[in-house]
């Protein structure tokens, strides 16, 4: 009897372990299947357009001709706007929360920012469409164009031409920024807070200002976490669907002006999926999805590789 119980428990040990291995394997299977399934279900479009799909500036369901260039362009531009706004802001917000604010203020503001990160993206889309875009059209965009006269500045002037419609690249970039800001700053705050007090003290002890300590020591010490936070934000921004779909305008064209409507990969898929009755049309959308998958995959790989490299070259601690 006793031996039987021992045998069973021994046996269960292996079963249990095997079960966890199986669960872990599911993650790998899903990842592999994602690539395979998307590629297989886009095989018509892949066969028709090949890799040229990537640099083809054409999207015409009537002619059944598809190319991803304008979607890739829109994805990249809106993401760049979002990162340009959100990353520096996150650094200074983390600086405020960790180094400058009174602990109570820091706790309250920190909690609020974490909540901001939890709001579903469709809410940002609603708010963007009904509140923010009209505001952009009536106030912000005319202000940038006329009052600041950005339209006539040589070089960047082209970015601010066109009718202020509120819907378009600039608006979606800013909404993306508001969306990823809390993610990045919450992680950066944790990273800043983890830098040991002695390291900061010795930087202050050298006669550095708070900003110099942050820029030259804290940011470097936590570089792994900081880069991780940025890539987290980048990953979010690049694949974000709902917040962008509502305000980007869904026009398949490449325009230098940030005021013009455009499209991103995700917004095109979400928006046109329901109307894609033709098999080639549907497959072109799935092909777009495959492109986005590869993009995010590559970004994540770079992130992981970069973090390891940074750690080696700087001796960062986190």
């Amino acid at each position: 009897m006793r031996r039987l119980r021992e045998y069973l428990s021994e046996h269960f040990e292996t079963t249990f372990r095997g079960f966890t291995v199986l669960c872990a394997a599911v993650v790998l299977i899903i990842m592999a299947a994602m690539f395979f399934n998307l590629a297989w279900n886009a095989r018509l479009a892949i066969g028709q357009f090949g890799l040229g799909f990537l640099w083809r500036d054409m999207w015409d369901p009537a002619l059944n001709e598809y190319g991803a260039l304008s979607s890739i362009y829109g994805t990249v531009v809106s993401t760049v706007i979002a990162m340009t706004v959100a990353v520096p802001m996150s650094v200074v917000i983390a600086l405020f929360l960790v180094e400058l604010a009174h602990p109570t203020v820091s706790k309250v503001v920190g909690a609020a920012i974490e909540l901001l990160a939890a709001i579903p993206s469709i809410i940002y889309g609603m708010w963007g469409l009904f509140v923010f875009a009209p505001l952009m059209a009536e106030t912000v965009q005319p202000f940038l164009q006329e009052t600041l006269g950005l339209e006539n500045v040589p070089g960047i002037g082209r970015l601010f031409t066109g009718a202020p419609m509120g819907i378009g690249m600039l608006t979606s970039g800013i909404i993306l920024a508001i969306m990823i800001l809390p993610f990045i700053s919450a992680v950066m705050r944790d990273v800043f807070a983890m830098v040991p007090a002695v390291v900061k003290e010795s930087a202050y002890g050298m006669g550095s200002t708070t900003w110099e300590v942050t820029r030259k020591v804290t940011l470097r010490y936590g570089i792994q976490g900081v880069v991780g936070a940025c890539f987290l934000g980048l990953g979010r921004a690049i694949g974000e669907t709902m917040a962008v779909t509502f305000v980007i305008g869904n026009a398949h064209r490449i325009s230098l002006s940030l005021y013009d409507p455009g499209n991103s990969i995700a917004s095109t898929i979400a928006n046109e999926f329901a109307e894609a009755s033709d098999p080639l049309y549907l497959q072109a959308l799935i092909y777009l999805g495959l492109v986005l998958l590869v993009m995010t995959f590559v970004i994540q790989m770079i992130a992981q590789w970069w973090v390891v490299r940074l750690k080696k070259s700087m001796g960062a601690g986190l």
């Binding site: 993650v27 694949g239 669907t241 995700a266 999805g289 995010t296 994540q300 992130a303």
Partner: peptide, 30 residues
């Protein structure tokens, strides 16, 4: 194997949710 799973898990966290939707569409809807 553990390292591979950890690496893949990290990457999967960063895959946009719309891609997951498309994937399940090809897996369970088509």
């Amino acid at each position: 194997f553990g390292r591979m799973v950890r690496f893949t898990t990290n990457i999967t966290t960063g895959i946009p949710s719309i891609i997951v939707g498309l994937f399940v569409y090809t897996l369970l809807v088509v």
